[in-house]
């Protein structure tokens, strides 16, 4: 090649190189970097047949700048606890009582005589004026209290840390504990991989405890003997998914369960025997990979969900047409 030709070639290559660099530099931006080739995709399971959704969100109460952890509904008032507080809020959002706690409250249970707050490792009993009446600590270091229930004057305290349920009198006297182990081989004791371990007592005075690692809801008597259970494991809407669900439960007056799941957040209603009856709120209503909302039900079967991610109490009522 002639010298001149080579020079031209050289300059041309340099220009092309500069061009490539500039094009690459300009072209690589937020508009055309493309999606995630390794997306963890659960979209197909998020779709819920609209005819299954029998509830609609009627209102919500913004909680402002607090970190809520647990809630109860009692006689038209909302009892809510969280990072270093216990509050009572009227149904319209008016604050009625505010107790500050030294540690974070995790669960709360209100009755006529008292309000019980469960901290991670302590049970506190207040009267309705906010005065501390009683308090005690279970004796192990690994205790992690997640739920409270009262049946026949026995206070049941769910200890997720030790995978057991503790029993006390309401004065704080220890009555015993159980780990949910049954005699037969088909059901295992409580499997609790994460701090979600909920209990509920229904209108028929039955104590139901979630066994999240088994995707099961189990019925125990006062002595801690397993009397029955149902389980439903599926990514689809009919079942529970993930390692440990349902994370929270509540019961309607007819004994049906309201369940709340984490991961793919959804709130559903199951019959006493475990058939899916309807859906309260589909995953699209919640943040992706969100925390399971605490669910509670009032005497009119209205469902209250405490949405931790958005810091809202969301109220779901049955659609009238159904």
């Amino acid at each position: 090649m002639s010298k001149k030709g080579l020079s031209i070639l050289i300059v041309a290559i340099i220009v092309v190189i500069i061009g490539i660099i500039i094009i690459d530099f300009i072209g690589n931006n937020a508009l055309n970097r493309g999606g995630n080739p390794y997306e963890y995709n659960v979209d197909e399971y998020k779709e819920v047949d609209p005819s299954l959704i029998h509830y609609k969100e009627t209102k919500n109460i913004a909680l402002g700048d607090i970190i809520p952890r647990g809630m109860d509904i009692f006689k038209g008032d909302i009892y809510i606890t969280g990072e270093n507080f216990l509050k009572v809020i009227g149904i319209h959002g008016v604050q009625k009582l505010n107790i500050s706690l030294e540690e974070s409250g995790i669960c709360v249970l209100a009755r006529d005589e008292f309000i019980i707050a469960g901290l991670e490792q302590e049970v506190l009993i207040f009267d309705h004026m906010g005065k501390l009446i009683n308090s005690w600590k279970p004796d192990t270091e690994t205790t992690y209290i997640t739920s409270l229930a009262i049946l026949n004057n026995i206070l049941f305290v769910a200890d997720a840390g030790n995978r057991r349920v503790l029993k006390y009198t309401t004065e704080g006297n220890y009555l015993g504990e159980f780990e949910g182990k049954s005699e037969s081989d088909d059901q295992h004791g409580f499997i609790i991989p994460s701090p979600h371990f909920d209990m509920v007592v229904n209108e028929f005075d039955e104590l139901w405890i979630v066994n999240p690692g088994k995707h099961a809801i189990e019925n125990y008597n006062e002595k801690g003997e397993l009397r029955g259970f149902w389980a439903s494991s599926s990514m689809n809407i009919e079942g529970f998914t993930g390692c440990c669900n349902p994370a929270e439960i509540a019961v309607l007056s007819n004994g049906s369960f309201v369940t709340s799941e984490k991961g793919m957040v959804r709130i559903k209603i199951y019959s006493q025997s475990g058939e899916l009856e309807s859906v309260v709120a589909a995953p699209e209503k919640f943040q992706e990979e969100g925390t399971a909302p605490d669910v509670k039900v009032d005497e009119n079967d209205v469902v209250y969900a405490l949405d931790f991610d958005r810091k809202l109490i969301r109220v779901f009522e049955k659609k009238l047409s159904e």
Binding site: Y40, N41, V42, E44, Y45, I191, I192, P193, S194, G213, H215, S233, S234, M235, N236, T241, G242, C243, C244, G263
Partner: peptide, 26 residues
Amino acid sequence: CGYCDLCGGYFKPGANKLETGAENQL
């Protein structure tokens, strides 16, 4: 780790068999 049987990091969403088969792995 919860040492879960139903590990959300191990199984594909919707994997119905909790076995180590490749078709179940995430």
